[in-house]
């Protein structure tokens, strides 16, 4: 059982390495951000699998924390995207009155106003 689990952990590590190739290639921000998700879930799986053979039940708690941190990383990324001034808001949606898009535009404008104010 223990040997089997170690082999599985190695397989998971391999899958993680495979996924890291995507970060290397990119090409976009969002593609690379998928890495946070990958690291989160695969990391959790590796910790859970290894907790048995290593006789470290505390690794379960580490996995729990990792699950929450992975979400935080993505949230930070999304907050940055929403504040990115230089990007044209994807207007190709065509949906009338998209409040999310409206909010993004408003916040961008606010940021611009703040900056202009500071310059003046």
């Amino acid at each position: 059982m223990s040997t089997g689990l170690s082999i599985v952990a190695f397989l998971l590590l391999l899958s993680l390495g495979l996924g890291l190739l995507r970060i290397w290639r990119g090409p976009g921000f969002a593609d690379r951000m998928l890495a946070a998700q990958l690291l989160g879930t695969t990391g959790i799986a590796i910790l859970l699998v290894l907790a048995g053979p290593l006789e470290q039940p505390a690794l379960h708690d580490v996995a729990l924390v990792l699950a929450m941190l992975a979400l935080l990383a993505v949230l930070a990324f999304v907050a940055r995207v929403w504040d990115a001034d230089e990007v044209d808001p994807g207007n190709e949606d065509g949906g009338d009155g998209d409040p999310a898009a409206g909010e993004g535009r408003r916040r961008r404008n606010d940021a611009k106003r703040r900056r202009d104010h500071g310059d003046a």
Partner: peptide
């Protein structure tokens, strides 16, 4: 992990739409 994955998948997709 399920909830975190579902949320981050949605957020990344939404950010990508946002980035055009």
């Amino acid at each position: 992990a399920l909830a975190a994955n579902g949320c981050s998948g949605y957020l990344i997709a939404r950010a990508a739409r946002k980035l055009g």
